[in-house]
């Protein structure tokens, strides 16, 4: 679990206008740079993927109504 040396590697990301627009909008909303946003997205994706691989379902709950539903991912 020890983190590797925190040296960063650079990659080029090819996104459509629509995808870039979402990245920019989310980055603004979350107060993050685009790099930090992608890093955060990767953490979340891995967390979800590991749980699904274990057989867990991804559920979402409405904060007000407490209604729960399964988030279906392909």
């Amino acid at each position: 679990m020890r983190e590797k040396e925190r040296a960063k590697k650079t990659m080029t990301l090819n996104l459509s206008d629509e995808e870039m627009s979402v990245v920019e909008s989310l980055a603004r909303e979350k107060d993050l740079s685009k790099t930090a946003l992608i890093r955060q997205a990767l953490r979340l994706y891995q967390a979800v993927d590991v749980r699904r691989a274990r057989g867990d379902k991804l559920m979402v709950e409405n904060d007000e109504t407490k209604e729960k539903s399964e988030l279906v991912l392909l």
């Binding site: 679990m1 983190e3 955060q40 990767l42 953490r43 979340l44 891995q46 967390a47």
Partner: peptide, 28 residues
Amino acid sequence: KVTGLLGFAGYAIECDGIPQGLMLLDLN
């Protein structure tokens, strides 16, 4: 439980070659 997960980070304060405190952070 969190080994290999990017969303978690562990920290220790070490003195005398022994952890004097441990912390686990969730970045998600």
